[in-house]
């Protein structure tokens, strides 16, 4: 038996918004620790991972691990039927269930909606991502700043270079109409309201497709801050963490390299 109840549907709605433009379908792996998924986009250059830890839920029960193959567009359609303050309960049989049940209940518990989502068999490749990668540069910034930088730059062109030196990050773009760049310095005072922190072991300069960096802005409502981790020649890791260590959405994006 799998049963998980979120106090407010907002949490899962936001998480799904952050991943549904990148992946069409994925296995939601349920274990005693929580709910997680990882999936690549069609060209296999971007990996999205998501975890909702058991403590994110008001009720969480998973008697034995199960994997629910879900079409992201279908689950999003069903969750549109939940008001943001409604609670969401997901129930599935752990013995080869062919559907999962979604129950939405309003705050006064006098309106209860039931939906059944058909599950799918999905063959997915699972990549092993090292947990404690030793990154050359890590930058943390308010997620609203992330949105502004990459929504602005990706309008100019799709080739975006991130260069991080001591205390400064430079984001630049080259496009058909011209080019642009933006420098972001580490904020001075620790009590700054919207801090930017930059940790550099070695300066790094890498290029990524703006289309993806802009798509990741869909995760901005999840988190006040975002962390970008870079190592020369390796995929960029971007993390949006849910409040109270309830979980996270992470993206891993292959760099553009000279052929």
């Amino acid at each position: 038996m799998f049963e998980a109840k979120l106090t407010e549907s907002t949490t899962i709605k936001r998480v799904l918004d952050a991943i549904k433009d990148l992946i069409q379908q994925a296995n939601f792996d349920c274990s005693a620790d929580g709910l997680s998924l990882q999936a690549m986009d069609t060209p296999h250059v971007c990996l999205t991972t998501m975890t909702l830890r058991s403590q994110a839920f008001e009720v969480y029960r998973c008697d034995r691990p199960l994997s629910m193959g879900i079409n992201l567009s279908s689950i999003s359609k069903i969750l549109k039927c939940a008001a943001s303050k409604d609670s969401v309960k997901i129930v599935a049989d752990d013995e080869g269930a062919d559907c999962a049940e979604f129950i939405f209940e309003n705050e006064s518990a006098d309106r209860i909606a039931h939906f059944e989502l058909k599950l799918m068999d999905i063959d997915s490749e699972h990549l092993s991502i090292p947990e404690d990668s030793d990154y050359q540069a890590i930058i943390s910034m308010p997620s609203a700043e992330y949105r502004r930088i990459f929504s602005d730059l990706s309008i100019i062109g799709d080739t975006i270079t991130i260069e991080i030196n001591k205390n400064t990050a430079c984001f630049s773009v080259e496009g058909d109409i011209g080019n642009g760049s933006l420098n972001l310095a580490q904020t001075d005072s620790a009590d700054e309201k919207n801090p930017v922190t930059i940790n550099v072991k070695e300066p790094v300069k890498m290029t990524f497709p703006g289309k993806y960096l802009n798509t990741f802005t869909k995760a901005v409502p999840i988190s006040e801050f975002v962390t970008l981790c870079l190592t020369d020649g390796n995929p960029l890791a971007i993390e949006f963490s849910l409040p109270d260590e309830a979980g996270f959405v992470r993206y891993f994006l292959a760099p553009k390299i000279d052929q």
């Binding site: 060209p43 490749e125 390796n234 891993f252 292959a254 760099p255």
Partner: peptide
């Protein structure tokens, strides 16, 4: 010309 390598060139498949 720039290109992207697929992620399985960076990470191992489980």
């Amino acid at each position: 010309r720039q290109c992207q390598r697929i992620l399985s060139t960076y990470y191992t498949l489980e």
